[in-house]
């Protein structure tokens, strides 16, 4: 009997251990960024990095406060977000409509799909020179480019989502007396929604990228303009700040998309937790 290991007494740690564990779990993902930033600041302070190449985190923060106080930052963020939102709304509507139409009517698929598949392979930014000639560097140019970029991911995923709805469910719904409208509302659209939301997340990425490039090259306002303007005055702190704000806005859009998925796709196992 002596060889038997004694059962370990259960760890007495009422509540405290659990909270610590949770805290650690939350903190761990941020550990690496924090270490990097601290190292970056030290390197800047020690003069290892030329501030004209890369400003210190503290200087970036100072630029942030400065631009926030004189209102420049908020104004530019507002302009950029308005462009992004408008382009996304228009492009998303077009993509959704096209997807619904082609997935529903075989004739429309035959008529449109080949053309759409061809056009979709053109990178939307390739249109930039042409767009500048057409619209100048005003609002229309940016919105147009975003529309071009956003339409196709949403179109493809809507089309695919509707087509991949289980035909057995559709025939069941017919037996149970659902008319066309009810069939769409209760079966086809909810069935296609996971795929449509994948399209939304993808096109949000395209949206920011298009906006950044378009604003950097051709704009007189907005975040991209702020960055390219700073470049001419060698304000690296403002450039880095702009990049960080883009990252923040991109993350924000992703969080919104995830929230939509949690809200509408809670019936799926992956999102239940």
């Amino acid at each position: 009997m002596t060889g038997n290991p004694q059962p370990k007494p259960p760890r007495v740690n009422p509540g405290g251990g659990l909270i610590l564990k949770k805290f650690r779990k939350r903190l761990t993902p941020w550990l690496l960024p924090i270490v990097l930033i601290v190292y970056w600041q030290i390197a800047a302070n020690m003069g290892w990095i030329n501030p004209r190449i890369l400003p210190s985190p503290l200087n970036v923060f100072r630029a942030f406060v400065r631009l926030l106080m004189n209102g420049e930052l908020l104004e530019n963020v507002k302009v950029s977000c308005a462009r992004a939102g408008l382009g996304f709304l228009i492009g998303g509507s077009i993509g959704l409509t096209l997807g619904l139409v082609t997935a529903t009517w075989r004739f429309m698929e035959t008529l449109l799909d080949t053309t759409l598949q061809m056009v979709r392979t053109i990178p939307n930014l390739a249109l930039l020179p042409l767009v500048i000639i057409w619209f100048g560097i005003g609002e229309k140019a940016k919105v147009f480019l975003i529309v071009c970029g956003v339409t196709f991911p949403i179109y493809l995923n809507t089309f695919h989502g509707i087509r991949s709805v289980d035909l057995n469910l559709i025939s069941m719904a017919r037996v149970y007396g659902l008319d066309r409208l009810a069939l769409w509302r209760h079966v086809i659209l909810p069935g296609a929604l996971p795929s449509i939301l994948v399209g939304v997340r993808f096109s949000l990425g395209v949206m920011w990228m298009t906006l950044i490039v378009a604003e950097t090259i051709a704009a007189s306002s907005g975040l991209g303009y702020m960055a390219s303007n700073a470049r001419e005055m060698m304000q690296t702190d403002v450039i880095v700040l702009t990049i960080l704000i883009y990252a923040f806005l991109g993350k924000l859009a992703d969080v919104v998309a995830r929230a939509l998925e949690r809200r509408f796709l809670s019936w799926r196992a992956v999102n239940a937790a």
């Binding site: 659902l178 009810a182 019936w267």
Partner: peptide, 16 residues
């Protein structure tokens, strides 16, 4: 069973 996965049990039974 052909239940709609995006509807609750009760909503599935009440379909139509």
């Amino acid at each position: 069973d052909r239940l709609l996965p995006w509807k609750t049990v009760l909503e599935n039974v009440g379909l139509g």
